[in-house]
Design a protein around this nucleic acid. Structure first.
Lengths: 201, 201
DNA sequence: TGTACATCAGTGAACGCGCGTTCACTGATGTAC
DNA sequence: TGTACATCAGTGAACGCGCGTTCACTGATGTAC
């Protein structure tokens, strides 16, 4: 019974979490388009109006989910040991990225298919928590150390953007066009990363 | 005044086209999610019920648009001279693909973001008209002739799937996450293709 | 050329639906003495 | 411990909205004689 979080505050938090859980499940099921506040309410056995105790509006729920997804992806990428040989590190980052996208396809789509980047140009700094930043730093380190050999005017941004595009393309194809396609994607994906990194040396 | 298409048949066709035009404009404006039959009707100055003379239902309009988009992309890719040196041909195919996606972003999303592939496994044949087939054939030719050098067990499918993923990733990033991002994408895209093809030799 | 009739493009009103949000409320929980 | 009161989580009903689709209809166009 330590005083800090009052029982009511804990209850509040727990309910909020339940709403988020249900919302996530709904997003996973129906996709973010068909997401409906009323359906979330139904699933947590609240009246639709009840949710307004916890979120300002429908948008706020979506935004909260996005934030969580972003964070989870960042955690996933940070799990990869960054002291590996740099090419291997990049390769593992790529695989970890794809693994996340595959395990959380609708999370992935939520994050990247509906929310435009806050950053609007190369001049603006990358947010620290942005998963892209992890790719970027890895690529920059590779470039500096010469492990990644590229043409003179290449910048880390160009290369990591391209790498990201490759990963994003794979992830999106898998979760949309090729959703029900049956093939050995794991092998193909490894090969894609391999090819790309080979092109960089 | 040749007899074949009666005036009424021509009228019918023209109206149908007007509906498709309006529908396309609407898709481009609002995205396929917010697409509404009633709004299309408003734009062609028909009552909502009127459209049912031309399309069975809302889905049929979307389907027609998809078909057109597919065809247009195929035409774009077929415009690339296929008798170029094979690596250059692949590179130009890639650029043409990206050009299409950039000029028709919502068309592109309509085609690839909402419609799962009919093909469900590698065993099933690729449809002839499928744009992917153009990539696949180009890649297969490159492999056969040895211009594309790959590891022993590589198949044309794996490689063209990977190439497609790269292109798709670029196209999607540009039309969603990086929609308002300001940078020299043309250069970066060329570089991406270059890197990938270099990784294949 | 004129008339009677059939065809058919297009309409207006209505259907039932699910949605996001507001608002006055209630009943339970927590607080003060 | 009991009582009076304030706070606050949660409700039910209602709002107005736009949607896809149906259906009986009308008025114009085309056809037959």
């Amino acid at each position: 019974m330590s005083a800090k979080p009052s029982t009511s505050a804990r209850r509040h938090l727990r309910t909020k979490q339940a709403i988020l859980d249900a919302a996530l499940a709904l997003v996973i099921e129906k996709g973010p388009d068909q997401f409906s506040l009323r359906e979330v309410a139904r699933r947590v056995d609240y009246s639709p109006a009840g949710l307004y105790e916890y979120f300002r509006d429908k948008e706020a729920i979506i935004a909260a989910l996005c934030q969580i997804g972003f964070k989870r992806l960042a955690v996933t990428l940070n799990t990869v040991a960054s002291d590996l040989p740099q090419r291997e590190y990049l390769a593992k980052l790529g695989l970890a990225y794809l693994g996340f996208a595959q395990k959380n396809p609708e999370y992935y789509r939520l994050i990247f298919n509906f929310i435009p980047s806050k950053r609007q140009s190369l001049q603006e700094p990358v947010e620290d928590a942005d998963p892209y930043n992890i790719l970027l730093k890895a690529m920059a380190k590779g470039l500096e150390s010469g492990v990644i050999k590229a043409s003179a005017q290449d910048q880390a941004e160009t290369l990591s953007y391209n790498f990201w595009a490759l990963l994003h393309g794979i992830a999106m194809l898998r979760s949309t066009v090729l959703k029900d396609f049956d093939a050995d994607f794991a092998t193909a994906d490894r090969r894609a990363i391999e090819i790309f990194l080979k092109g960089l040396s």
